[in-house]
Nucleic acid binder design. Structure first.
Lengths: 197, 197
DNA sequence: ATCTAATGTGAGCACTGCATACATGATAGC
DNA sequence: GCTATCATGTATGCAGTGCTCACATTAGAT
């Protein structure tokens, strides 16, 4: 774990940049993230980060990739082995919670016209996709997993963004949790009603 | 309809700015939208827009508000009087289609930490909310409309963003349409299956 | 010990949002 | 019709941005 010695070379500037960027994102929001600020926080000249990141986008992508991993952990922690729709709702709550706790990071992860060729990023999102797949298989063993995974991820992801953007009230965490639970329930009972009708 | 005469005063600079901004958004993407470019396209000095917009954000919000209205029209045009889940799927397809046709606009509408106090914007999103409400009432007359509206909007919105961001393949429109149809179907049959089990 | 390539520095360019001081002219009151 | 007013436009300038390029330093291979 290379400490920042008072030497010419930093040691691990790349990692330092990512975590500095991460911090600035949390503190000041996405638009305020400048390479100069990142460099300053890393204790290095303004142009040094360019030795490790092709451009600003590459740095943001690296931070986003870290975000995907954290999101995955956060979800896993919400429920170790989900099996029922209620368990699924708890995971949905965790997803939205993550978005609201780290709004700028979440936006960096999803709301930027990012380079789809970014490897680290692609791998991290593939991991999330796989997680959702497993989740769906466990909760709805009879269903067609591909389509239902898309549905579940979309539903949860949409909930996150609508809360983030103020389209759904996001002041009280308990209220949010309640809304998500009833949203998931409503979606499922609606389907049942259609099948009956 | 004030034409841009060669006079000192423009006539309707506010509208000209909004449409110039709209054009630049479509052409070059969101990040490239600068007030200077807008002013130039409107044939006016760089700081003139500030007479009509407090800051860049206010201009973007105005464009976003226009976007909400267009989205609403686009959805209404997709199906005049939806009554079945299949009709709903067609509207979902239209929603995603709009996002993919106008990515930068859609991001401006949803993916910016916007000022929630912006009146025009709030009104426009309230209109969309009402539209979804009516849609849900028509398609699922037995359901609790509040929760199910949230569910439907979230599902569709999530689909739009996951396609926009490359998390779901968005190359072939027909394939997208097919995926959305089976996604909606999967979501509903999953609920039915749970009720049975 | 020396050479080389990786890594960091500094100056500088074109651009940005925005503030400030000033120019113009549509229009309301006489 | 004349003139004062004030919304609307212009010109200039500042601080901050991403990024490039020439140069400095030093870790590690030979």
């Amino acid at each position: 774990m290379s400490r920042a010695k008072s030497t010419y070379h930093h040691g691990d500037l790349r990692a330092a940049c990512v975590s500095a960027a991460r911090e600035l994102l949390e503190e000041d929001g996405g638009a305020a993230l400048s390479l100069r600020a990142v460099a300053k926080r890393a204790g290095v000249s303004a142009t040094a980060p360019y030795r490790h990141f092709a451009d600003r986008d590459a740095l943001v992508s690296a931070v986003a990739a870290e975000g995907y991993r954290e999101l995955a952990e956060h979800l896993a922690r919400a429920h170790p082995s989900p099996e029922t729709p209620d368990d699924l709702a708890e995971i949905a709550i965790a997803y939205v919670h993550f978005a609201l706790e780290h709004p700028a990071l979440f936006r960096a992860m999803f709301a930027e016209p990012c380079d789809p060729a970014h490897e680290e990023r692609a791998a991290a999102t593939a991991a999330i996709r796989a997680y959702v797949h497993g989740l769906v298989r466990a909760v709805f063993p009879e269903a067609e997993p591909e389509a239902l995974s898309t549905a579940v991820w979309s539903l949860v992801h949409g909930l996150a963004f609508l809360h983030l953007d103020g389209k759904l009230d996001a002041t009280d965490p308990e209220e949010i949790a309640g809304r998500i639970r009833s949203t998931v329930r409503a979606m499922l009972t609606a389907g049942a009603a259609v099948e009956r009708g």
